[in-house]
């Protein structure tokens, strides 16, 4: 195993909770509070993994499959992403489709687990998650496809590899649209403001957090960690499109890590300055993201 692969997996496994911590810290700073420690998400996950579990008698094996599939699909998806332009551990023509569909698989079982509790509350969250992600999926696809068209390749590694800087030179306008669209998808898929509020479970307007109300202990730990990894995977793509610098050198890792931290801060800033959208306006936002990437395509391919 090459040292770059080691760095890849080390970053994938260790960094995601830090992003959550940084976003929370940024929000605290905006609110003039000290906020929880930067490493609080790590402490939470470790603690959850050591706790006991309670399962409702309504639930079945599907309830336990939700966290498992959610975590595995998120980690598997990071295996396809070239972090900072370094080739991904797994790459083949058409892996962008697998990337998007892995998240869909995770979502299928998260939603099924929520419905398995037989709770109206969790059913509501499940319905929202399912409906909104059905709209976010075309946006993600169109964004990836316009990258594919611009780079002439169908694998994430070559789409987001060293050639990306050249693509900026001749199709910068399209990439700008794609970057904005991907950022919206990132916020929607990871249940951040303005689509969802990650900090509360108890409002009727919540989406993701309400789905996992009945999970506890190690299962909840899996879910929290899986959510962080998902943020990392999508974030890595956004960051790479926005900051396409660095060749295959160690410097690229540094740029990538710094950019990821910048992204987490940006998420925190967005969450601090924006209010959550009314639920009926979320589809409008997601359709806008689809249109933006659609234009990316028209610009690249016309």
């Amino acid at each position: 195993m090459s040292p770059h692969l080691l760095v890849h997996w080390a970053l994938v496994l260790a960094m995601p909770p830090l992003l959550l911590g940084l976003a929370t810290k940024t929000k605290a700073a905006f609110a003039g509070r000290v906020g929880p420690p930067l490493f609080q998400p790590y402490y939470d996950i470790v603690k959850l993994l050591r706790k006991g579990s309670v399962f409702s008698r309504t639930t079945s094996w599907v309830f336990r499959a939700g966290p498992v599939v959610g975590l595995v699909t998120a980690v598997a998806a990071t295996g396809l992403v070239p972090l900072g332009g370094h080739p991904a551990p797994l790459s083949f023509e058409g892996d962008l489709v697998l990337f998007a569909y892995l998240f869909a698989l995770g979502r299928f079982f998260t939603v099924a687990a929520a419905l398995d509790t037989g709770s109206a509350f969790e059913g509501m969250g499940a319905a929202r998650e399912a409906a909104f992600s059905a709209l976010a999926e075309p946006a993600l696809f169109l964004a990836l496809v316009s990258l594919a068209r611009a780079s002439g390749s169908q694998s994430l590694t070559s789409m987001l590899g060293c050639g990306l800087a050249n693509v900026w030179a001749h199709a910068g306008a399209a990439l700008l649209l794609v970057a904005v669209s991907l950022f919206i998808v990132l916020l929607a898929e990871n249940s951040r403001i303005p689509v969802d509020d990650p900090t509360t479970h108890l409002e009727l307007t919540m989406i993701h957090e309400v789905m996992v109300l009945d999970h506890g202990g190690p299962a909840l730990g899996f879910i929290e960690y899986g959510a962080a990894v998902k943020l990392f995977a999508l974030g890595a793509i956004v960051v790479r499109v926005a900051v396409p610098f660095g060749t295959n050198a160690w410097a690229a890792w540094g740029i990538f890590a710094a950019a990821m931290l910048g992204l987490a801060t940006a998420i925190g800033v967005v969450e601090s300055v924006m209010a959550r959208l009314r639920l009926v306006q979320v589809p409008l936002l997601l359709v806008t993201a689809c249109l933006l990437s659609g234009f990316g395509i028209v610009l690249v391919a016309r």
């Binding site: 579990s53 409702s56 008698r57 037989g118 709770s119 509350f121 969790e122 108890l202 109300l213 009945d214």
Partner: peptide, 9 residues
């Protein structure tokens, strides 16, 4: 796991 009903807030 102790068998209980769905918590449901």
């Amino acid at each position: 796991a102790p068998e209980v009903g769905t918590w449901d807030c």
